[in-house]
């Protein structure tokens, strides 16, 4: 079943439930059938509260293209300091692409082009004069699949501080490694085997190692791209706890396929659909009283 068909059937279901609204309103939102409708769609405003009074990161009119194909349409979203914002939506909706714009990881893809204003503490991160290295040190990232380097556990965590020259001597480095591992909740499990390869750990431990590696460079924002999708439920619970602890010190943006996870860990939730940011609101509102039909259809499990 293609995305459109899936969507159409989901919308159909919603229509039956809430009679009185015209079918056209829904097709307008889906808007993949003809060009005029899709034009309307790009002008469609995000419902809920995408903007904040004081934002850590803010994005305005973000458009992303892969070659000529546009995958994100005018995304406006603010991310507040020390909040956990979850991004949900069906596969291919652009949520991971959006996340990767926030620390310019999309630069590594040749065919990818980003337009719009993205700022971190008011500073344009797509400024051609800006050096991407300190940006990525400030906005760290944890990936879908745990990807420890083929080095020892210690060296994995020490990698960032070393390349950024954050420490002057060995004792200081030891301390950074220990603190990072402790904050990632991994210290007790690995303190006796710091010099064994990081690839020898279990999947959940590897992912926490990657989190430790990321926080070792003291970022301000941590981006997490489906950090638990390769993990079992116990390891997932462990990471979710960790996210709650980390939110005291870091701003976290997490992409997830699990709506329960979004509901558990985040304070705000953003729902993406086919490259559009449909709805942003407090997590509780999104999951109990979604204002947009698509959001409702998605969170009630009619598609996605």
């Amino acid at each position: 079943m293609s995305m459109n068909e899936q969507y159409a059937s989901a919308v159909g279901g919603a229509n039956e439930l809430k009679e009185g609204r015209s079918m056209e309103a829904y097709t307008d939102l889906a808007g993949t059938d003809h060009a005029e409708v899709s034009k309307d769609r790009t002008r469609e405003k995000t419902v809920g509260k995408p903007l904040l009074e004081s934002a850590k990161m803010s994005t305005r009119n973000v458009k992303v293209f892969y070659d000529d194909k546009q995958v994100l349409f005018d995304v406006n979203l603010d991310i507040g300091a020390n909040e956990v914002i979850a991004m949900i939506g069906p596969s291919g909706c652009g949520k991971s692409t959006f996340l990767r714009c926030l620390n310019r990881m999309n630069d590594t893809i040749d065919s990818c082009r980003v337009e719009g204003d993205l700022t971190l503490d008011g500073q344009n991160i797509y400024d051609p004069k800006l050096d991407v290295v300190p940006l990525r040190a400030r906005v760290g990232m944890v990936f879908q699949k745990p990807n420890p380097f083929p080095k020892s556990i210690y060296d994995n965590v020490a990698y960032g501080p070393r390349i950024h020259g954050l420490v002057d001597h060995r004792a200081e480095l030891d301390e950074v490694v220990e603190t990072s591992l402790k904050r990632a909740g991994l210290w007790e499990e690995v303190k006796d085997r710091l010099h064994q390869p990081g690839t020898g750990l279990s999947g959940g431990q590897q992912q926490r190692l990657c989190i430790a590696r990321t926080i070792a460079v003291s970022p301000e924002v941590i981006l997490m791209d489906e950090p638990c999708s390769a993990l079992d439920p116990i390891a997932t619970a462990r990471i979710e706890e960790l996210i709650a602890e980390l939110s005291e010190n870091f701003t976290i943006a997490i992409v997830t396929h699990s709506m329960q996870q979004a509901a558990r860990v985040s304070s705000r939730t953003a729902y993406f659909h086919l490259g559009k940011l449909i709805e942003v609101n407090d997590t509780e509102v999104v999951f109990t009283n979604p204002q947009h039909k698509l959001t409702e259809a998605y969170i009630t499990g009619r598609f996605g």
């Binding site: 620390n103 990881m105 590594t108 290295v133 300190p134 940006l135 990525r136 040190a137 760290g140 990232m141 990936f143 990807n147 420890p148 380097f149 083929p150 990698y159 960032g160 390349i163 950024h164 990657c210 590696r213 990321t214 460079v217």
Partner: peptide
């Protein structure tokens, strides 16, 4: 591996 390293600001 590349992503992991680049994302740390290498």
């Amino acid at each position: 591996m590349r992503d992991g390293s680049l994302a740390l600001g290498a």
